[in-house]
Design a protein around this nucleic acid. Structure first.
Lengths: 230, 230
DNA sequence: TAATCTAAATGAACGACATTCATTTAGTGA
DNA sequence: TCACTAAATGAATGTCGTTCATTTAGATTA
């Protein structure tokens, strides 16, 4: 490349601490999110992240201790997009439904984060804690006993994570192929999923149908089993 | 082990097709399972798998097309361990509960397979298809309408996958650390999870409690919403 | 003010790991 | 008998996360 040409060549920065810090947790998070939205999680590599920030890969390690750490930053940022406002305005069951759906929608677009959320402590994840606080308050306001809330929330979250995967399942996930003859009842159930008639080709979002069914069932069941005494 | 040398010298095999095939899908599956049970999924590398089969890594690619393929083999094998026998002998809700619990237990020990199960078509996964057939028959026998079964099973599976993650969550996953002051209600709910008294230190499996609660809720809810007309 | 410490960058290097390819050898079918 | 295919070896490749010595600049302290 040209070194010190007249036209603004991407000036090669020399080694050493720059006058102005180039990186920060916030900048790394933002760049990671942009990278993911453009190229998916396979495009989120430490090298690509560094490049998008115009920095050497090793520079990232002054601000995060590992790639997992980057994922945690992204996860916590996304938790802020989960809608909890309904807990302040709507009845418990409607609020839970709204919260659960937005939760699922956010992470259906970020599947690789699910192991991170499900397995890492919430310490140092402020947005995540804020989300849980709002949900807890919603349960308390509806009359739930303190000791039952976390179990109920965990049960709901388990369903939400699994449903986020299901959103990304291919349409033909239940195609039995050559094994059809050995699973006639299952094949028939798959063929008639959602409509009793013969294959009438009704447009239908299978993942949404299963999610709605399961969510309604769990909300009703939780209210009956562990909800507030009437 | 020893060929026909007196002292078991690891006889170096020369290149070329051996008189007896060394590999097969079944042998690869078995070796992968043994590797995983001894060293976990981080120990399941193509190199380690090849070594455990006393073969060069590249030899594996004559039998599987990728590591994903190996995971699929393992997944289908494990599906055979999911208990479906209760569908033939017990009432629907008890059978579903038994099936769900064994399903969760099997894959809680094999978390990295969950994306594989949740996202890959069941074609060429005979044990998986067999499992679904038994479950479908159980629903039909209980009077479920053909068109509702798959949605209900998918909803249950979503909950099961999420619950499998929860089994592996660390105890302190809800430790808010320094953020406690900003989430008082949530912190209190975490502290009193499972028992109304002050921290009485009752021995308790949190993951099991949440699973049982959610499972009962969903089973009851599904029966009421989409189950057979009485 | 000078010396020291720490923060934040570069760039080279490393070690896993999955995968590919040329090559070799042994059965199989025409 | 001859071509073809199946199944192995071994070398090589490319991607990726991570580490480390080094450099520079700001912050702290004597």
């Amino acid at each position: 490349m040209t070194e010190f040409a007249v036209h603004h060549v991407p000036t090669r920065r020399r080694a050493g601490r720059p006058p102005q810090a180039l990186l920060s947790s916030a900048r790394i998070t933002k760049a990671a999110l942009k990278l993911v939205s453009h190229h998916g999680y396979k495009g989120l590599t430490m090298a690509a992240l560094a490049k998008s920030l115009n920095v050497a890969p090793s520079a990232l390690y002054n601000h995060v201790s590992s790639k997992q750490d980057v994922l945690l930053l992204v996860e916590d940022h996304l938790m802020g997009r989960v809608e909890v406002c309904a807990f302040a305005t709507e009845p418990w069951d409607a609020a839970v439904a709204k919260w659960a759906r937005s939760y699922r929608d956010v992470f259906a677009a970020h599947l690789p984060l699910i192991p991170v959320i499900a397995l890492l402590p919430v310490t140092n994840a402020p947005a995540t804690v804020t989300m849980y606080e709002a949900v807890t308050q919603g349960f308390l306001a509806a009359g739930w006993a303190r000791e039952s809330i976390i179990d109920a929330v965990v049960a709901l979250e388990s369903f939400i994570y699994g449903s986020a995967y299901d959103v990304n399942a291919p349409e033909d996930i239940f195609d039995v192929g050559s094994l059809a003859s050995e699973a006639p009842d299952f094949s028939a159930a798959v063929a008639h999923r959602g409509n009793p008639d013969a294959a009438a080709a009704i447009p239908r979002n299978d993942a949404d149908a299963a999610f709605t069914l399961g969510l309604q069932a769990m909300i009703a069941g939780l209210a009956a089993t562990a909800g507030p005494r009437k």
